[in-house]
Design a protein around this nucleic acid. Structure first.
Lengths: 126, 126
DNA sequence: GTAATATTGCAACTTTGTCGCAATAAAATA
DNA sequence: TATTTTATTGCGACAAAGTTGCAATATTAC
């Protein structure tokens, strides 16, 4: 399964890059120049996640958000996404706070993924 | 809006208590002795949350889980639910780890809710 | 240019959660 | 206890989010 360079991929990546924040599929769709199918957007995003270019956060509203992690470019699959995210309840913005969290788990527990979201009001909405 | 003591409430609370973990609506439904409608379960749980008897966690799978917090009984509405949760990718168990997290947010940011979930494998599944 | 196949678009579907409304049942009142 | 009030329930319908199958398309390799 060799990846191909497609119109959809470049456009979706462009939207993510220029935004800088974590975006949900509908936010992405709204910012696209061309019409790309909903299913395609999800598939592209999931492929990005597999490849480690993008990481996924599930908000406390149950929605998926996708973000280019600043230090994702360099060390593929080596970086950990255990940083905190902030979701503004007013404007809906979701952003990565560059604060890593390390939690000591109980004996025998193995952590695979971190999904850490604080919601509230951002500086512009509070 | 004065709350009433109903069959559904006592049964649902009983399931939550005896489990000790955070449960999704379908886990609750499966453990109920009598048949209670899906919508009712959600409404009861949401009322419990409003009253502060129960707190809600949204898993990294997008599903809602509900748990009786050990220290919820005493100080209603005064306790904060900023502790970490763990979800086992194998057995599906979701539990509260009694570890509080305090994060310094950027200037002007106001935190309202914490939704902190680490997923991986619990001691029995790893 | 042609062939192989990754990707897309469309439609259908699943899951999760909510809502309106009539029926029911818990509490208050007489 | 009987009656009234209204919180709660069950049912059905609905919405949102995300996934999947399949035929059509577009990208890459030959």
């Amino acid at each position: 399964m060799k990846r191909r360079k497609t119109h959809s991929k470049t456009e979706i990546l462009e939207v993510l890059k220029s935004s800088g924040n974590a975006l949900s599929h509908d936010m992405i769709q709204a910012n696209l120049k061309s019409d790309i199918d909903r299913a395609t957007i999800y598939r592209v995003l999931n492929r990005f996640c597999e490849d480690g270019q993008v990481h996924k956060i599930v908000g406390d509203n149950g929605k998926q958000y996708f973000a280019i992690c600043s230090n994702c470019g360099e060390k593929k699959h080596l970086h950990s996404h255990n940083h905190i995210h902030f979701r503004c309840l007013q404007c809906g913005k979701v952003e990565c706070l560059e604060r890593d969290i390390s939690v000591a788990l109980p004996e025998g527990y193995v952590a695979k993924m971190h999904n850490l979201v604080i919601s509230g009001f951002c500086s512009e909405c509070s």
